[in-house]
């Protein structure tokens, strides 16, 4: 990966005290990870878009992850953002409790967030508040569960030939 023109030191100096930021670090693969307050995600993205040194104008990807063992933060919405001029890639995460899986929609900022959020809603049941048309997109409308949540096993649960216990784990 080409190094970005913006170092992590510069970046953390500029953004370390942002009101929506919980913490940030650079991971072993060189990607800047930010944990943010889920209620302020629009503010965070708009601030980053207005970043003078590296305007983050490209929403690369949006998805969610389910961690059932993290009490109170079972769901995590992950945004991959990209500054095309300075080649700065960011991973922004917002944790949500499963019981209150709501987060503001980014549709007002990025037109492309529309279907990505619909897909995330379809898979995880996360409500994107302010989304103009939050319906299922890949699965059928009659489906009554959100299939990528970890409680829905992919295969017959009585089947044990792929169970980790039998592989010494």
């Amino acid at each position: 990966m080409n190094p970005s023109a913006i170092s992590f030191e510069d970046f953390s100096q500029d953004w370390g005290s942002a009101p929506w930021l919980i913490d940030m670090h650079v991971d072993a693969y060189g990607m800047i990870n930010m944990n943010i307050d889920a209620t302020q995600v629009i503010q965070a993205v708009e601030d980053l878009r207005a970043y003078e040194k590296a305007p983050i104008q490209f929403l690369t990807d949006l998805c969610a992850v389910h961690y059932p063992e993290r009490s109170g933060k079972e769901l995590e919405v992950v945004y991959h953002l990209h500054c095309l001029t300075q080649n700065l890639r960011l991973r922004v995460k917002a944790a949500l409790p499963e019981s209150q899986a709501r987060i503001p929609s980014l549709c007002s900022v990025f037109a492309g967030a529309n279907w990505m959020e619909r897909e995330t809603f379809d898979f995880y049941g996360i409500q994107f508040e302010g989304h103009p048309d939050l319906r299922r997109i890949l699965n059928m409308d009659e489906m009554d569960y959100h299939p990528l949540l970890k409680q829905y096993a992919l295969e017959d649960e009585t089947r044990d030939d792929k169970d980790d216990r039998f592989f010494g784990r």
Partner: peptide, 28 residues
């Protein structure tokens, strides 16, 4: 075409998300 892979050390990916360009631009 992006691959977002989360591994928890297990024998399979914990989460794998494909950034599929078609899916993203067809909404336009």
């Amino acid at each position: 075409l992006g691959y977002y892979l989360i591994s928890d050390g297990g024998r399979t990916p914990y989460r794998l998300h494909f950034r599929r360009p078609c899916f993203i631009y067809y909404q336009a």
